[in-house]
């Protein structure tokens, strides 16, 4: 009968390992595998408990998948009602707890002879090698399709641009934040000229690598309008971008 409890041992181990990996801050590659396994376990165990031994494999799998979805829904609602935040630890507690409770219940039922022992679902099911090879090739080709689509999305020509902006979020009273973000795909040199009522107040030469942001907080007393012209070097004749308070009140929130 030892072999008949393999699934219970595996699910208990998965629950323990998933919780341990989360507590130890294991790499995503590890938590991903254990997390998905832990996600599936409660559904499997509940399906074993609820379905009779005569239920066919496909139905059993569908019920297990459905119950795997139901457990976090019910668990999440229960946690929320109890005022417990839905964080990683609480999800681990719900899924791990249901798995362990399911393990115990299934173990007891099997000992009492009221549940069928574990059997590999594919028992005598034999797939000829070349059929297996065809299925394997199909999986590889389909995965290549998804990979190709991801590559296509990565190499798709996209607009290159620079963002210039004003904001008062997180600044002290009487100041405004000016920011430049380079999304041109390469390093770009800019000159930012700050004007107050049309008169030059300050200028900065900024060289930004791609995907980098430059920002500066400047005084804004609310009595005069503020304009920021961004030039893309070497062109200093036409502003590449500009922002403008168009009045004497601070923009933003």
């Amino acid at each position: 009968m030892r072999g008949s409890q393999v699934d219970i041992a595996v699910s208990a181990a998965v629950a323990a390992l998933a919780c341990g990996a989360a507590a130890a801050g294991a790499p995503v590659a590890v938590t991903m595998v254990l997390g998905i396994a832990l996600f599936a376990m409660p559904g499997y165990l509940l399906a074993q408990l609820l379905l009779g031994p005569r239920t066919a494999g496909l139905e059993r799998a569908l019920v297990a998948a459905g119950l795997a979805f139901i457990v976090p829904i019910a668990g999440g609602l229960a946690l929320y009602t109890a005022g417990v935040p839905l964080r990683r630890s609480s999800w681990l507690a719900v899924l791990g707890g249901v798995s362990l409770a399911g393990d115990v219940a299934l173990f007891l039922r099997r000992r009492a002879g009221r549940a069928a022992p574990f059997r590999w679902p594919w028992g005598k099911w034999q797939l000829p090698r070349w059929h297996a090879a065809a299925f394997g090739a199909a999986i590889v080709i389909a995965a290549c399709g998804v990979g190709l689509a991801r590559v296509g999305a990565a190499i798709q020509p996209q607009p290159r641009f620079t963002q210039l902006w004003l904001s008062t979020r997180g600044t002290s009273a009487g100041t405004v934040k000016i920011g430049v973000t380079n999304d041109e795909g390469h390093t770009v040199g800019y000159r930012l000229v700050l004007l107050s009522e049309g008169h030059k107040e300050a200028a900065w030469d900024v060289t930004l690598a791609n995907a980098h942001t430059w920002q500066r907080t400047v005084p804004f007393n609310g009595k005069r309008s503020l304009t920021a012209n961004l030039y893309r070097l070497p062109d200093l004749t036409t502003p590449y971008r500009y922002v403008d308070t168009n009045g004497d009140k601070a923009p933003g929130l």
Partner: peptide
Amino acid sequence: FNHVRDVARIYDSGDIVVYYLGQ
């Protein structure tokens, strides 16, 4: 909106511009 008094032009990425109407 570039020319409306008290409508601030607060974001410019070339094709997309954001104006603030709060004033």
